[in-house]
Amino acid sequence: MPRVVVDVMLKPEILDPQGQAILGALPRLGFDGVRAVRQGKRFELDVVDEMTEQTVRRIAETLLANPVIEEFTVHTG
C-alpha cells in the first residue's frame, strides 16, 4: 500500500463553523440550492509496502485527527 489517503471530518454532531461560513457565502456568490456544507481535511501518505492499515489508523488517531471531535476514514490501494 504505497499511497494511503486519510479523510478527516468533524463528527456530525459537532459544530463546523467553516462549513457554515461556506454555506453562508454561496448564495452571496450566486450559487443557490446548497442546503448544507461540511468541510474536512484530506491527507495523502506515501508509505512503505509493509505498512499495515492498523498502523495507518494509529497514525490517524494519534496525529491526523482529534478523535474527541473528529472522525476519519482510511482509503488504501
Binding site: 454532531e13 459544530l15 474527541v68
Partner: peptide, 14 residues
C-alpha cells in the same frame, strides 16, 4: 448509537 461528545465547539466570529 452515536457516542455523544460532551465537548462543545465554539465559533468566535458568530
Amino acid at each position: 448509537p452515536a457516542k455523544r461528545p460532551s465537548v462543545q465547539v465554539g465559533d468566535p466570529f458568530a
